[in-house]
Design a binder for these strands. Structure first.
Lengths: 229, 229
DNA sequence: CCATACCACCTTCCATACCAGTATCCCCAG
DNA sequence: CTGGGGATACTGGTATGGAAGGTGGTATGG
């Protein structure tokens, strides 16, 4: 089945008007609820119920559910409802492998160019992580860590890569939120971030990639061991 | 805005039933039409018109359009229609960087494990590429090349990575289809594939990653130079 | 003849209605 | 009491109509 070329009207590129849509609101609300753990894994609920809570109809909720399904956060089961996917260790392993690939590439790209602003942001985030750790504020630590990685992928000059990495990070964040209490203090992250920064400053792409990969691989192993019990 | 935990009903994991939906058909039809060039870049058309051609309503077409938009093939412009995105060289560069990262990681993973079936498939594909090239059959060559890369990412043991790589490959395929006529004979690919296979057989992850990255980087540079004129 | 303002059409987005399918529960038979 | 069969009700997938909004065309005034 093919779509035949309709009456042509070639246009130049145009900036997206970006009106806020209800579907976007539903997406954000659902995602936030899942990431915060308000909707624990395994929960099943009907689209209609979600629509009622959000004060909209099923249509935008359905669209949001499909998007989240695409990202692997939930599953829409016909005649069953939408189900928040449990954190499958195997799934998480795959996600971390993707994340290692993407962030490693981002680090290599960033090392190959001068980008003082990104490096500064990453240094600031690392410093804040140290402060938060000293203060025992795990939430602040996680936020600063998130800023570090976000600055890394957003500074590499590849928005597509950054977007994919952000999606994978969202998944990993879920796992970190659920295992935070059972993991030891994240004292290693700061020095690993330091190693990444050093490689970036030196402009050594391979070292930057390797340091980033090591950092994520260690975190992955740690979380997986906790998750697997 | 948050979704409060509704009446819980925790269930065990279940395999997806995977009924075929009209939305999937619309997605496939649209994507094929774009990849084949039937819907050239820049074209604007209404969702209604597509729905009419496919003999369905606007709802599944809209869903398909959103999916394609997510993949970067088109753009849904409110009150304008869906627009097939032009092949922006900058965009393609980003896509290839993602592809290099993902396929490089896949090669490294594959090298670290024994997977004779995948290697055999890749060797077969490479041989078929040689035959197609000798016969002057560009289409068969492209198909065999596609099989090579598909076997690589699907053999690495990470379906998530494979899916992302497949999406990126689709984008690259569009560019290859549009520039095929203006590019030289792809004689280098076969030996580059050979280098990748050698590294995989040797179990050398780093060499496999490097060889894969080099292969894609060369193709990327070639296509981009043609595309930029 | 050109510029401007108004109007009408066409678009997506959302709400609502319909449909088909299946899981569940109840009832009856053994 | 237990097992099976069927009716029922609830679900998501799809269709459709209405509303909001923007664009292009046209008409009018300078």
């Amino acid at each position: 089945m093919e779509v035949k070329p309709p009456p042509l009207r070639v246009t130049a590129a145009a900036p997206p008007p970006a009106r806020e849509k209800l579907a976007d609101a539903a997406y954000a609300a659902l995602k936030a609820s899942i990431l915060e753990g308000l909707l624990p894994p395994g929960v099943e609920t009907a689209e209609q119920a979600i629509a009622d809570q959000l004060g909209m109809s099923r249509t935008p909720v359905h669209e949001a559910a499909l998007r989240l399904q695409h990202e692997g956060m939930l599953q829409v089961l016909p005649r069953k409802g939408v189900r928040v996917l449990p954190l499958d260790p195997e799934d998480l392993r795959q996600t971390y492998e993707v994340l290692i690939a993407l962030e490693g590439a981002a680090a290599a790209l960033l090392a190959a160019q001068a980008h003082p602003a990104a490096l500064a942001a990453m240094e600031r985030a690392t410093a804040e992580m140290g402060q938060a750790l000293a203060a025992g504020d795990r939430a602040a630590w996680a936020a600063a860590d998130d800023r570090f990685h976000r600055a890394l992928v957003e500074g590499c000059g590849n928005p597509k890569l950054a977007r994919l990495a952000a999606t994978a990070t969202d998944q990993a964040q879920r796992a970190r939120a659920l295992t935070a209490a059972r993991r030891p203090e994240p004292v290693l992250s700061a020095e690993e971030h330091g190693a990444i920064l050093a490689a970036l400053r030196a402009g050594d792409s391979e070292a930057a990639r390797a340091a980033t990969a090591r950092h994520r691989a260690r975190a992955s192993a740690e979380i997986l061991s906790v998750l697997r019990g």
